[in-house]
Design a protein around this nucleic acid. Structure first.
Length: 685
RNA sequence: GGCUAGGUAGCUCAGACGGUUAGAGCGCGGCACUCAUAAUGCUGAGGUCGGCGGUUCGAUUCCGCCCCUAGCCA
């Protein structure tokens, strides 16, 4: 049955270039769209730039241009990057357009009219120099918990504790450096809790249909059990975005109108291409038409796409997503992308050095349906692409094309021998599951099947040894049979690789003088068909080009400071020798236990409060419950703790240090004790 | 700490509803071949399937505990 699907990838933010991390998602989505089309379905694949928000407004000011100009430039670059990576969007729009404004306002008004929006006065920091309210990320100051300096207004990167900007000590505006003042402002909130029953139902249906991954469902259950909070959807002027229709000076928060961009982009495309827009977007019409809407997103934005988004759509009478497919992040050489290591690679930089199909294949060969992160290991990248694409697949055509041209004028045999035909039919059957594997985003599995057939084909060619037949005039017919079949098998493999490496397969199709737009097009082998001359389809990856790309990525960053303390976790010996300086970094102190108790809901934890003398009182969680089942007996004892360990946010509260104990863990743990005469707060040396 | 996922050959991973010698690709060694972009084929080495217990005639596969890694905790 042919399906009609609207597919999207998450909207890249207009305030930065496309990098190879983005490509995981756009390749995943593009392969899916292409494969589904080749399986006979209709897929409309759209995307857009996410163009609103304070960062864009401020950057435009800094560069002395209008935000409109900034986002237009970005859009041009983004579109070029995707196009050159062969990401085949039917339409690529921007959230800063009339279609998006109309839809955003419609959603807002629908929610307002059904009383799902409330307004509240909020106290917020305001930059008196710039005359604007400051988003949390634009305020810095000293963490109220661990007193680390220069921490953002929403959370501390040192201790992980979250708070509100007004909790910061000595706050300052990142924009002007001025000390922000608190100011009241009315904000609008969507009462997300109102939608819990609807969301639960949506979730249950998606789970049933496979539209949400198990991990995502689990995560959602957790969010439900924690309770859904209202969502602040307005921001005060000046802001680059859409103004609320009934509240001058109030703008929609960028995250409200961003996903609406999916619908806006499709609306524009539908108008342009003469499609029935409502059949894809309006709840009733979509239900009747049986269309689907599928989103590909990264795991960091799961919350927005599985809670806010379906709720907003539902509230406005729009269709909800049929599926939200979540993928993991890209690491490079086993670590987060890093500008200083040259592994933060922009799409454009990659394209200047390497063929996009290399990366598409590598990612596809790694991609599965889970949220697991993917690693771009350059050594593996080089080896896999060279071996699989050049050595296995392209080689089949390369090694047999010569026979066909030299002895048979480029013409494949007219009558395929039955035993060879059997080989072809077997291969068709073996690759058949790939269609479903593509649909289920099991690309790695599909690529294994394809390469397995390529392996067998090469082995079969070796067994038949057509080069020997070529030397024997009497074996011409057999040679024709074998070479023709090899080319046919190559064509079959090419069709299944087409969603992944479309440009390279297009070259293969030039050689074959035959194109396939559906997987079914290659069910039958070609007979009596004339081939074009063979040209190399792709070259092996030259490791020098990878290196050049890394060097370029390093130099394109503007003089970042040397990473003095980058931990090389993977390469360090298990117990490296340390110097006295390292030891001196530890601030070990004596603490007198003033409170010690079980923690509700924790299997292993005890909660301590320590009197630490001049350091005051400290709360520390320690996983030693198994060893000390009667915690109250510890009160009054002197223990040793690390006083300068970065505080750590736990579910049960902040743990401000670590208490030392000896043993293998579990019940075998003994507190390190200090003579009762020791003074609380005394330094341990 | 909670939740989730994962820990299987040097690397990337597959697999087993528990049952003879645990698989693939890449990489590495040897041999063969010479049609092919030094591509291909055959073959070899390499794994106490994270650890400890339990259930069982039998567990890497099921159960429990523990250790480690990653992500999430809005």
């Amino acid at each position: 049955m042919s399906r009609r699907i609207l597919a999207t990838c998450a909207l890249p933010y207009a305030n930065g270039p496309i990098h190879i991390g983005h490509m995981v998602e756009h390749v995943q989505g593009d392969v899916w769209a292409r494969a589904m089309r080749m399986a006979g379905h209709t897929v409309h694949f759209v995307c857009a730039d996410d163009a609103h928000g304070t960062p864009i407004m401020l950057r435009a000011q800094r560069e002395g241009i209008t935000p409109e100009q900034l986002i237009a430039d970005s859009n041009t670059q983004h579109q070029a990057d995707f196009r050159d990576f062969h990401i085949g969007y039917d339409h690529y729009s921007s959230t800063h357009g009339e279609a998006n404004r109309a839809l955003t306002v419609r959603i807002y008004e629908a929610l307002r009219d059904t009383r799902h929006i409330e307004s509240k006065s909020v106290r917020q920091f305001y930059d008196p120099d710039k005359d604007m309210f400051l988003p949390d990320r634009f305020i810095k100051g000293e963490c109220p918990h661990c007193h680390a300096r220069d921490q953002y207004g929403d959370s501390c990167e040192v201790c992980g504790k979250t708070y509100t900007p007004t909790d910061l000590i000595e706050p300052y505006s990142v924009i002007s450096g001025a000390r922000p003042v608190e100011k009241e402002s009315v904000h609008y909130f969507v009462r997300l809790g109102d939608f819990e029953p609807m969301l639960r139902e949506w979730l249950a249906e998606r789970r049933q249909a496979g539209g949400l991954q198990v991990e995502v469902v689990n995560k959602l259950e957790e969010w439900f059990s924690d309770g859904l909070r209202s969502w602040d959807i307005s921001r005060d002027a000046p802001y680059f975005g859409f103004e609320l229709p009934d509240a001058p000076g109030k703008f929609f928060y960028v995250w409200l109108d961003a996903p609406v961009g999916y619908l806006a982009s499709f609306s524009e495309y539908a108008a342009e291409a003469g499609l029935d827009r409502d059949a894809f977007l309006e709840a009733d019409a979509a239900a009747e038409a049986g269309t689907e809407m599928v989103h590909f997103i990264g795991k960091d934005i799961t919350y927005f796409h599985t809670l806010f988004w379906p709720a907003m759509l539902h509230g406005a009478g729009l269709r909800t997503p049929s599926a939200v497919y979540v993928h993991g992040f890209l690491t490079v050489n086993g670590a987060k992308m890093s500008k200083s290591r040259g592994t933060f690679i922009n799409a454009r930089t990659y394209l200047e050095h390497l063929d996009p199909d290399y990366l598409r294949y590598y990612l596809a060969a790694l991609l599965g349906p889970t949220l697991a992160d993917l690693d771009l290991d350059f050594k593996a990248f080089e080896e896999r692409v060279n071996s699989h694409l050049v050595g296995k697949w392209a080689n089949i055509a390369s090694r047999c094309a010569g026979f066909v041209h030299k002895f048979f004028d480029g013409r494949l045999t007219d009558a395929i021998a039955p035993e060879l035909r059997q080989r072809y039919d077997d291969a068709v059957a073996r690759l058949q599951p790939c269609a479903e594997l593509f649909e289920k985003r099991e690309y790695a599995h599909a690529m294994r099947l394809v390469m397995g057939v390529a392996d067998d084909t090469n082995a079969w060619i070796a067994e038949k040894a057509p080069w020997k037949m070529a030397k024997d005039e009497s074996q011409r017919e057999q040679l024709h049979q074998v070479a023709s079949m090899a080319i046919n098998l190559f064509r079959l493999l090419s069709a299944w690789l087409k969603p992944v490496i479309p440009a390279t397969v297009a070259r293969a199709e030039t050689f074959l003088s035959s194109t396939s737009s559906q997987f079914g097009d290659v069910d039958m082998p070609l007979a009596g068909h004339v081939l074009a001359p063979f040209q190399p389809l792709l070259t092996r990856i030259d490791p020098k080009k990878i290196q050049a790309m890394i060097d370029d990525s390093k130099s394109s960053m503007n003089a970042a400071p040397a990473p003095a303390a980058t931990p090389a976790t993977a390469t360090q010996p298990a117990t490296p020798t340390i110097g006295i300086d390292d030891f001196a970094k530890l601030d070990l102190r004596v603490g007198k236990v003033t409170v010690c108790e079980h923690v509700e809901g924790a299997d292993k934890l005890l909660r301590f409060e320590l009197d630490a003398g001049e350091l005051g009182s400290r709360q520390i969680f320690s996983g030693i419950k198994a060893a000390y089942p009667e915690p109250e007996k510890l009160v009054g004892r002197n223990v040793v703790f690390i006083a300068n360990l970065a505080p750590r946010k736990m579910r049960f509260g902040l743990s401000e240090g670590m208490i030392l104990s000896a043993g293998e863990g579990g019940a075998d743990l003994k507190l390190v004790e200090v003579d009762a005469a020791a003074r609380p707060g005394a330094t341990v040396r």
